[in-house]
Design a protein around this nucleic acid. Sequence first.
DNA 1: AAAAGCGGCAACCGCTTTCGG
DNA 2: ACCGAAAGCGGTTGCCGCTTT
Length: 325
Amino acid sequence: MGRPPCCDKIGVKKGPWTPEEDIILVSYIQEHGPGNWRSVPTNTGYQSSIFVAAFFFRDAYVSTFCLGLLRCSKSCRLRWTNYLRPGIKRGNFTEQEEKMIIHLQALLGNRWAAIANYLPQRTDNDIKNYWNTHLKKKLKKGENENGVSSFQSVPKGQWERRLQTDIRMAKQALSEALSLEKRSFSTDSEDLKPSQGTSTYASSAENISRLLQNWMKTTPEPVTGGGGAGHRTESGETVTQGSFINGSSSDGALSDETTPPHQGFGSFFSFSNKSCHESVSVEQQNAGLMTPENSIVFQDENKPNLGDQVPLTLIDKWLLDVGLF
DNA sequence: AAAAGCGGCAACCGCTTTCGG
DNA sequence: ACCGAAAGCGGTTGCCGCTTT
């Protein structure tokens, strides 16, 4: 007996998002920040975001302006967190990521949001899908080949003890990580650098990146202020946070464009860093939040920030050091 | 070349938790 | 303390593209 879904309202659009809708949503969030989702569908119809959208879609200007975002707030939030949010890495999972998911799933169960906190560039939905479509089969196959999985091979009592030890170690690692001075982005971002050339940004988002890029071409001066979070790849290319950047810089989808992929997008999403640091302060994290439960879930949706990167590498190391693989 | 089957993933649904009045 | 609304989360569905027959 739940409340009727907000999407039951007449006139609310469902189904796949169009690039136009994505642009409107991103524009709105750029202006107002993530959160307050309820106001998104209303406001996107009539506020300045539409003006921004008009830059991208001159041809579609009329329809965009008239329709706005006919999406429920929930749909907007989901689209943002699972697809449009900066810092999302798309494409194949690395072996390391795979191992982490397997291990964390064994530790935490199907708590995908918690697991996603250890993989800052992946969404819970992504991890969940990957688990259901790839890892389940893989583990099952492994079981068939080896008799039992590596995790199940541990006797129950031993496994429980190990779980407790793992949680304790995770707490310790997180505490250590969070008590560290903030490291420079240039150092830490190395950890988050897409480790493979596999990160791609598919379908509509790719279209958006192109459209955004076109917009950058036609915009005389990109908004400044987001460049600080950038770092350079081995090739010397400046890369800023953001899924568009990851996707375009690695798959070469935009390499034929005159404007380098990195230009503008970082600043386009510059608000993300701000909201990241505002959402969960270091003080908050250190102020008794390190229980087994909330030490895992303390981060919010803007995962790729400095504070998040430190635990990742430490825990990552820990996961390998624990020797369960 | 066409049809059927299959797999992957984006998005939705509904329940639970959190928050504000 | 209570209640309603919003946000968060995990499970599930359905579409779409690729592969196989």
